[in-house]
Design a protein around this nucleic acid. Structure first.
Lengths: 250, 250
DNA sequence: GGAGTATGATTGTTTGTGATTGATTTTGAA
DNA sequence: TTCAAAATCAATCACAAACAATCATACTCC
């Protein structure tokens, strides 16, 4: 039996079970323990499994390398805090919409909930959701290169196939009278549609977005919940009179 | 026995099994070990299999390295030739569908036409189209991680917003009686819808796909044009009786 | 007939294998 | 907890299998 054949057998066994024992593998393959050990060492180096005493175990999908990068390097501390807080609002079996944008992107590495389904119009979001092993859907639509978001009627049309438990939306302005706003009307149309189709909507934003207003209106302030990093006492007092705010502690 | 015949035998054996042994191949073909080794070296250079100690293994089509220069490094000479030929069929102002799959991916760097609009269900295709400055749309749908294709009703639904001048489709089997086929019925549904909505459809494939048939039917042989790399005289004669074939010269 | 290619045999070298060793980890009973 | 037996481990060895390189022969296409 070829080395390659044994490798295939070992990996296939590991698709069905969490762990395989060395003794088990010697029986299935007819090879000696030494050979199996060498196989396991090779496969571990290729990051296709993880060695454990007495055999080998599945390498979990969620432990891919981007984890560290994304969690520690890619985003500012403030964005990560807001992302972590937003991710904690997701429950098992939720059907989600996750909007394009860096603030919503930062929540994905922190999602702990199991068995969720996520629809997104963000190119990187789609990739990241799949990398972390979540069931990922894409809205479709025109790829706007500057923001790597899919927008326009294609995206709205794609959204109309789904209903959501929760929508996590990015936003550029959160204003006491103007409500939630964003500069691009095409993106606003997508956010509006997602908002309409979700039982609960969350606008995830950092402190710089408060008391700003931009061109295109999405919805009124009290129709959604704000998720944010640390903000000033003043801002908090002003906005929590009008709507729910969830503020990250750190 | 001709070199070409042995190559076909070897590749066919590898479609059914994960690995083949050299000794096995000497028995089937009657050739010496040296000859088989040379065959395997050739086929490995064409990226149609992967050599392993004692034989050869299926080539896994994972792992695209996005930082490489796609024109020179990412694809085999055969794939590039087919891609270049397919790209040359695109005219200015065309509205295109470009299917997911490595063969169709290889055409994107060669597209010279101006002012085109391209819709795709391939994740990498979307990125590459945008990188090369084309107007890129995405069908949407569920991201199938293994192939990085978006499929299912979401993708079909997304497609129904568009009509195409030309559709470039990937395929796993091109068979004289079974027509064009692919293993996954969900992907077949997407290809079918794209085929239906295009004035002209092209199936882009390498030589190994000829006279193969897989599970899900897409359409009949004479309803589309085949774009391929170099194939044997025998194959060309058989297929050009039934439909148009465009074969890359090199 | 001669240039170019494909083939099979032979060579010395490299790689994969199973057995053996003593070291390390796990287990279970005191 | 502590200790000893059992299981598992990494390291090493010698042998066998597979390897690339080379050569001489047979074939094909001008």
């Amino acid at each position: 039996m070829l080395t390659e054949e044994r490798h295939v057998i070992i990996l296939n066994l590991l698709k069905e079970k969490e762990v395989v024992k060395i003794h088990e593998l010697t029986e299935v393959t007819g090879a000696s323990e030494s050979t199996i050990r060498r196989d396991l060492t090779d496969l571990e180096n290729a990051e296709l499994l993880r060695r454990v005493h007495g055999g080998a175990a599945k390498v979990s999908r969620k432990r891919t390398e981007p984890t560290m990068d994304e969690k520690t390097n890619l985003f500012s501390e403030e964005k990560r805090a807001a992302g972590r807080l937003a991710a904690s609002l997701i429950e098992d079996n939720d059907c989600l919409f996750i909007d394009a944008g860096t603030t919503t992107l930062s929540m994905i590495p922190f999602i702990q909930a199991k068995n969720i389904v996520a629809v997104t119009n963000g190119f990187d979001h789609l990739r990241l959701l799949a990398e972390y092993g979540f069931e990922a859907y894409c809205t479709g639509g025109r790829l706007k290169e500057s923001t790597k978001a899919m927008t326009g009627t294609g995206a709205v049309h794609g959204l109309q196939q789904y209903w959501f438990d929760k929508a996590f939306l990015g936003v550029n302005g959160i204003h006491l009278t103007a409500g939630y706003t964003t500069p691009d009307p095409e993106e606003a149309a997508v956010k509006k549609e997602a908002f309409k189709r979700a039982q609960q909507s969350f606008f995830v934003a950092d402190a710089s977005k408060f008391q700003e207003s931009t061109f295109a209106h999405i919805t009124e302030l009290d129709k959604a919940i704000i998720v944010t990093g640390k903000i000033t006492d003043n801002l908090r007092r002003m906005f929590e009179e009008k709507t729910d705010i969830k503020e990250a502690l750190t």
